[in-house]
Computed example of a mutant assay.
Amino acid sequence: MPRSLAAVTLSALLAVPLSGQATPAPEDAETRILSPQDGATVSAPFTVTFGLSGMGVAPAGVEREKTGHHHLLVDVDHLPPGDQPIPSDDHHRHFGGGQTEVMLDLPPGEHTLQLLLGDHMHVPHTPPVVSDKITVTVSE
């Protein structure tokens, strides 16, 4: 196998978590949306502020015990699988730099927001560190 292909193959294998190797989270760890409040009516763009207790925030790719980074789930009905990296799309927004807030620009109407902490590889912890789901209405 050519060296560059071997490096790509090894990198791909390292990016996929192996079964049974979930990153543990303390039982008392919790994340929450500090603002806006559940049921709020907001004007776009608006700021979403993240809270975390019982753990620390570390950027994606940085493996430290009891740390992770936030993912904001927008209009998502079900949590993503707990044994796979959280998808990255308009409904699953990654904050791999360790950010604790975002300016969000959503179309008018009702939207749900929920936080899910991911480990250094974007995989949810065990047990999952997930916020309550809130609903906001973006005014026209």
Rank of each mutant, 00 (worst) to 15 (best):
L52M: 06
G97C: 07
P80S: 00
S35W: 10
M55S: 10
H94F: 09
P59C: 09
S43A: 14
F46G: 09
P24W: 13
D105G: 10
R64T: 13
M1A: 12
T9F: 13
H111M: 06
T67F: 01
R93Y: 03
P128D: 02
H91F: 08
K66N: 15
V62E: 15
G96L: 07
L73H: 06
T67Q: 07
Q114L: 02
D83V: 01
I33K: 01
D132L: 13
P128R: 15
S88D: 14
I134L: 13
H125A: 04
A25R: 01
R3T: 12
Q114A: 02
H71R: 06
S88T: 11
G20Q: 06
G39I: 06
P24L: 14
Q21C: 10
D89E: 04
V42P: 04
P107E: 12
S53P: 00
L18C: 08
L113M: 08
S43I: 03
H69F: 12
M103G: 05
M121Y: 07
T23V: 04
R93C: 01
S11K: 08
F95C: 09
E110Q: 15
L115C: 08
K66L: 06
D90C: 05
P108E: 02
F46V: 06
D77F: 02
P59E: 08
P24N: 13
E110M: 10
Q84D: 05
L72S: 08
V62F: 15
A40F: 04
I86T: 04
P26I: 00
Q84T: 10
M121C: 10
E101L: 01
S35N: 10
G98R: 12
L73Y: 03
A60R: 15
D90Y: 12
V138P: 03
A15Q: 14
S11D: 07
L10W: 07
L73V: 11
H92C: 03
P128Q: 11
L79Y: 09
L117C: 01
P80Y: 00
I86R: 00
A29C: 05
L18R: 14
L10E: 14
H69V: 11
L14S: 10
A15L: 15
G54P: 09
E110F: 01
T23I: 03
L115H: 05
F50M: 07
P81T: 08
H69K: 14
L79P: 03
G82E: 07
T47W: 01
A58L: 06
T135Q: 07
P45H: 01
T49W: 01
V16W: 02
V16S: 02
H122C: 12
P107K: 08
H92Y: 11
P108W: 00
D132I: 03
P59D: 08
G96C: 11
D90G: 13
V8A: 15
V62Y: 12
T67P: 02
H78T: 15
R93N: 05
L104S: 07
S35K: 13
L72E: 11
M121D: 13
S139L: 05
L79G: 09
P36I: 09
G98T: 10
G97H: 09
S19I: 04
D105V: 06
H69N: 13
P108T: 04
L73R: 01
T23K: 04
L116C: 04
E140D: 14
H71E: 06
H91P: 01
P85I: 06
G20A: 08
L10F: 11
V102M: 13
G54C: 08
A7W: 13
T9I: 15
D28T: 03
Q114I: 02
V74H: 09
P108K: 10
A44R: 05
P59Q: 10
R3Q: 13
V8S: 14
